[in-house]
Amino acid sequence: MKVRIKFAKTGAMRFIGHLDVMRFFQKAVRRAGIDVAYSEGFSPHQIMSFAAPLGVGLTSHGEYLDIEVRSHAGAEDMKQKLDRAMVEGMEILSVTALEEGTKNAMASVAAAEYSVRFRQGYAPDPGWADRLLAFYGKPVIMVKKKTKKSEAEMDIKPYIYQLSASGEGDDAVVRMMVNASSSGNIKPGLVMEAFWKAEGKELPEFALEITREDTYTDTGVDGDRHLVPLDAVGTGF
């Protein structure tokens, strides 16, 4: 049976990179005593798929991975066992079963919702929220996107699905829903950089504190986008 696990990554764990999070979960699944399925071959590995890698320094309340289990004693039991194998800053939020044939976590990702705050000393100038919304209201938002070989200009407006801004000073916060699929992943920092640039300034390196609020899949049909959290397609067991 395929199981989808939702977890939060907060506090000091934001400094653990994606590959190390994968290693952490492989060991956690063993510690928890989950009857996980392994691949065939001489060096078998756990059948495990992570949704979207989270950059070092970011926290998240909506990370996902799928595992394949051979037996279980119910979702609540598995959630408790896994949660006991966590460390501070890693928390299991939900465990759901996936129907046979559901796309794996990585392939399911369509969008991610982020909240962006400002580190102490980096708060934006007063009135920033209205200016950001006006910036977002433009029909085209051109940015330079660096690839390994070159820098390409692209319009990111179609990849930003929602954006709101509020608060002043330490309470300033931006929330945005952006494309996070393998074909058009947009990092929230890129949007903020573009805004700063439109303001005629350079975004300082450590200004932003970014949290991924959740990761979404698209259940819409015929091109209508219908975004739901990745665990909404799972069921209790």
Partner: peptide, 23 residues
């Protein structure tokens, strides 16, 4: 609270060396 501020931890190689909190 971590002994090193984010600016330092994000700048150095493998910040996980300095945060503790391991299993």
């Amino acid at each position: 609270k971590l002994a090193l501020k984010d600016e330092i931890l994000l700048k150095v190689e493998k910040p996980a060396r300095y945060i503790g909190n391991e299993v």
